[in-house]
């Protein structure tokens, strides 16, 4: 579905990415992990064709991403970014409608099919009841559900999630990720997500890619990636790794360095 080889990018003299390669298979849920400044967002921007790499290539369904027309690309890839902070004077219905933009021709209105898809995704994400409310009046979690509805209205084959739950409380974090997970299973959607929370990543992703200082440190399934030594090397924390009692995926338990603090050597 999505393949990248030899990606490199630098801003000025600072090299952000070195020789990154990855492959995402159709229907897979693929997680990109790494500490702040490891090049995750730059990698995502290159993978979705928003920026071009200095060297290396990205292929979407065997065709180079740069050769896609921008609307054609938006019919395949949708992006859900962090919750928007901008003041938006539109109603929820109008915002979701904008997801159909890549399908609409100039001077023509929406077809019945467009309308139906909008209805479907609004039902699915549970935002129909807010239809006529002003977008900016919603809470953060509600806004993010509307953003998902907009992204799904694009009928994407590949959905990018760029830290979609950063500002949300745990209720909404799970709600958003479950919603996407369910949709993925029903529609054969491929998902690439950048998550800060390693435990959520282990539960929702089939494959993980660990970035460190712009390089691929490791790639594989959660069992291979969520390992104390790797995590320590990349994030500089010494976690305890347990198996999730229900899903049998590795979960991290962070432990504070209290023993050294209590003896007064904290600073």
């Amino acid at each position: 579905m999505l393949k990248a080889q030899g990606l490199a990018k630098s801003y000025g003299s600072e090299q952000i990415l070195h020789q990154v390669e990855l492959e995402v298979k159709r229907g897979e849920s693929f997680g990109i992990l790494g500490p702040n400044g490891s090049g995750k967002s730059t990698l995502v921007k290159i993978l979705i064709g928003e920026e071009s790499p200095d060297s290396g290539k990205v292929w979407l369904e065997g065709k180079e991403i740069a050769s896609y027309d921008s609307k054609e690309r938006a019919r395949k890839i949708a992006v859900l970014a962090q919750e928007t902070m901008e003041e938006i004077d539109f109603t929820v219905g109008q915002v979701v409608e904008m997801g159909r933009y890549p399908y609409l021709k100039k001077w023509t209105g929406m077809t019945r099919q467009d309308q139906e898809i909008i209805e479907q995704v609004m039902e699915l994400t549970g935002v129909s009841i807010y239809r006529d409310r002003r977008f900016s009046d919603l809470s953060g979690g509600e806004k993010q559900r509307v953003a998902i509805a907009k992204a799904l209205a694009q009928e994407p084959e590949l959905l990018f999630l760029d830290e979609p739950t950063t500002y949300l409380d745990i209720h909404y974090q799970l709600l958003i990720l479950d919603l996407i997970h369910r949709y993925r299973q029903e529609h054969q959607l491929t998902i690439v997500m950048v998550l800060h929370d390693l435990n959520l990543a282990a539960q929702y992703c089939d494959q993980l890619l660990l970035l460190s200082k712009g390089k691929v440190k490791a790639a594989g399934n959660p069992q291979q990636i969520i390992q104390p030594s790797l995590i320590d090397e990349v994030f500089h924390v010494k976690p305890i790794v347990l198996s999730h009692p229900k899903w049998q995926v590795p979960q991290l338990l962070l432990s504070a360095k209290r023993d050294s603090c209590s003896s007064g050597e904290c600073s």
Binding site: E50, S70, E72, R73, R75, I77, A81, M98
Partner: peptide, 8 residues
């Protein structure tokens, strides 16, 4: 950014 993600 959202506009460019929508193919504009």
């Amino acid at each position: 950014r959202s506009a460019s993600h929508l193919g504009m």
